[in-house]
Design a protein around this nucleic acid. Structure first.
Lengths: 224, 224
DNA sequence: CAGTGAGTTCATCACGTGATGAGTTTTCGG
DNA sequence: CCGAAAACTCATCACGTGATGAACTCACTG
């Protein structure tokens, strides 16, 4: 139903262990289905779990996501999640980590003439959200910020940290900090309605149109 | 910890009904603790439960709120929640119902000259959110919209319904609908950051200042 | 004053949750 | 080539959840 949910649609019904009377080792007839123990070759399970966690948390939020679901999405046993990440909370915190390129994009957009900064910021914001690799982490943050304390804290840090630094020289005059936080507010609102709540016609509007109108709104707070 | 949580801090350990040794009733020695059965006098339990539900959902969201917690907040048995409202989901839907005065406030603000409509809308929005009687319902909607489908749907309806109707004659020209949805976006963003994520200095800024700057941003989308 | 129905509590169920520990197989440093 | 550490599975636990049904008491109609 959703968009980012590809990862989970693997058939792989259930670990058909086919116990078959075994001796000590699984002398089962069929393909040697590794029962327990380490897998041969290189391992990329840790990242797989984190990726699955990002996807799941992005879709359903913290409370709505069970460790079993994450494990299933990653194709591993649930205990492995604990093995690598300890508690659900600490896994969540790591899933919340934002890719560095988001900061770069925003920072780059803030540079240059003040005149077009509103439009440039909106464009940068949309480009990051439209990128499937950075979306789950952003989605997780915004979706959970409404409920989860740590996620809200992250959102605040990102807003005041990244944005304040980027717009430091751009927004000047009275109440500069307040106006900076309002820019963050507008961007979060945009993400919330366009990507999370899926409000039409905003969700389907093409990038350029959104940039034109919403950029104007940001510019109104930046200027003075 | 939070602000709206007054309702729950009642000591009222146990419903000491003080039945005074009654005749037919359990002639137990101690204070006649109303075990089961209807309470004498008028009953306002139904509304108490709904109010408690609004407060709890507003604080913790749908998943984070248990029926037991709601029942405890309302000071009643958990089974009563089911008795009156059926499932948790249906109780949630009723808790989502917005007071009519919100629509009125927004609609009233949209009337009048186009010039100051941005500021008037922001002021109306803030006044509704700062009113403790309407806050839990709004909080519930915004907090849960990130996760819960029905809440998101409500948010969309409210945005396109109330706002589109109110701003129908005000926003004209190209992409009127899109720009209307952007006004909604800005207002939701404001609520999200000022009241939910509690971003400073936005959260502590006084109403007039917020109205001045943010009103300008709304106006930028309204005009043309 | 009988009796139906609504308000209220208690005890309980089946289930999904996060977490843990024991046991198995591989990798890898010495 | 040995042994410790890492990767991995399985079985289980204790717990909180939403939901249900039986029992009891009051209000209200006739």
């Amino acid at each position: 139903m959703e968009s980012v949910s590809d990862m989970r649609e693997r058939g792989e019904t259930g670990h058909e262990q086919a116990g078959t009377t075994a001796g000590t080792a699984p002398a089962a007839g069929a393909a040697a289905k590794h029962a327990g123990g380490r897998r041969p070759g290189e391992t990329r399970t840790r990242e797989a779990i984190l990726g699955a966690a990002r996807v799941c948390f992005a879709e359903r939020g913290f409370d709505g996501t069970s460790l079993r679901r994450i494990a299933e999405t990653a194709g591993v046993d649930q205990a492995l999640v604990h093995h690598f990440y300890g508690t659900k909370e600490s896994l969540f915190l790591q899933a919340l980590e934002l890719p560095g390129r988001i900061q770069e994009a925003i920072t780059a957009a803030a540079r240059g003439e003040r005149a077009g900064v509103g439009e440039r910021m909106v464009r940068a914001h949309l480009s990051v959200w439209d990128d499937v690799s950075s979306r789950p982490a952003l989605m997780t943050m915004v979706r959970s910020a409404a409920i989860h304390r740590a996620a809200a804290a992250r959102l605040r840090e990102t807003a005041t940290g990244v944005l304040a630094r980027a717009l430091g020289g751009v927004i000047t005059g009275e109440d500069a900090m307040l106006r900076t936080s309002m820019v963050a507010t507008q961007l979060v609102g945009l993400a919330m309605m366009r990507y999370v709540a899926v409000l039409e016609p905003l969700s389907s509007a093409d990038t350029d149109t959104v940039v034109r109108y919403y950029g104007r709104a940001l510019q109104a707070v930046v200027d003075d």
